[in-house]
Design a protein around this nucleic acid. Structure first.
Lengths: 201, 201
DNA sequence: CTTGCATTTTACCGGTCGGTCAACTATTGT
DNA sequence: ACAATAGTTGACCGACCGGTAAAATGCAAG
């Protein structure tokens, strides 16, 4: 890794924690640069605009997410419905550990950014939508396999997957309003009760 | 209504639409004053700070909500589970009409503000939490009555109410990411499938 | 040794941010 | 009528916003 990419990654790292713990608009480029030990001119060598930094931040979070506990949760070796349990558990422990370190429930960065910027920036919105779409298919795959295995009665796996993702985001939102990750523990498991039936032929 | 309260209400009205359609941090006091036809010094005669404006905006939205379609939805004359259907329907039509007028899905102002400010301002967070708590009890009352009527099997009405509220917020979030209120139509009705059982004695 | 490119530094841009202040004008109660 | 109070005006504050430009440096290939 050369010096250049290191500078870039320090910028993104500084931005990640700040965008996550506060908001997009509330974090200035100057502050990010100060924290990354980088001059502002150097920042604009790597990023044409603040939005492009946000895109990079979203990408890195998505990678963390995909390669971290989500990869573990959606392990094809696990029984499909257990993967969903695992994911909820992982989300709970993640938010809990963030709160222990940071003192605050920070919630889901994708949800946070979606509600903040999606009426103002269609490029960021499209990026976030793509993240959600990928997440939805994780749920859908698990549901499809659960149906194939006969673990659950047939249902509209596509819509139910979307409903489950919505529920997860909603629970995280409510937990953030209470600054209490325990809500995830209490409400999370009910995700498996969600069902959207197949349209009758 | 004297002139003073009119000035104040024009400020709040201008702020409501802007906070809803963009975000808290992205809307400046100057812009609100310009739109309300008020000088900035006059603004600070009525509001000690921007946060206090936000509190007033939240209150007005909460009143609109409580006296508007939510009052209709949670009509005690309606069978309890139909009230929930009604609420989902109303949320759908509301978001749809906003999109028709404004070109955008703006989502739920309480959810939007929660994710934006709740790590940064505990006073605003407390206010938003109070709104959610009230909303939760609307659901809980309906569930309690449904159980009493024998319409649904007994369950943990308090947690299920919270789960339903979370689901509604989550669906609105996802719909906003797609800028498409139709998602509410597709996913909304599944809210009634959510169940959190009573703890076994 | 030199050319050329990537990177970094520094100073700077116009504009906006939330908030303050003192002077001024209406309105109200006595 | 007068004093007190409520409301309004417009200029102003320092700080910060996202973004720019040009000069200085590091570095690698020819």
């Amino acid at each position: 890794m050369n010096i250049a990419t290191d500078t870039r990654s320090r910028i993104v790292a500084a931005a990640k924690t700040r965008f996550h713990s506060r908001s997009y608009a509330n974090v200035g480029i100057q502050e990010i640069c100060d924290n990354a030990g980088v001059q502002k001119g150097s920042f604009y060598h790597f990023f044409p605009s603040k939005r492009d930094l946000a895109l990079a931040v979203i990408d890195e979070f998505a990678d963390d997410w995909a390669n971290g506990f989500v990869a573990e949760a959606f392990d094809p070796a696990l029984p499909p419905m257990e993967r969903i349990d695992y994911l909820i558990d992982a989300a709970y422990f993640w938010q809990k550990s963030i709160k222990e370190v940071h003192g605050r429930m920070l919630g889901c960065i994708f949800g946070n950014l979606t509600l903040e910027v999606s009426t103002q920036d269609d490029i960021l919105r499209a990026k976030l939508l793509a993240i959600f779409t990928r997440a939805k298919f994780r749920f859908k795959d698990a549901l499809d396999q659960a149906v194939a295995n006969g673990d659950i009665a047939p249902l509209n796996t596509s819509l139910t997957a979307e409903a489950m993702l919505a529920y997860l985001e909603g629970v995280i939102l409510l937990a953030k309003s209470q600054n209490d990750p325990e809500l995830l523990y209490r409400l999370g498991p009910a995700i498996k009760t969600l069902r959207i039936e197949l349209k009758p032929a």
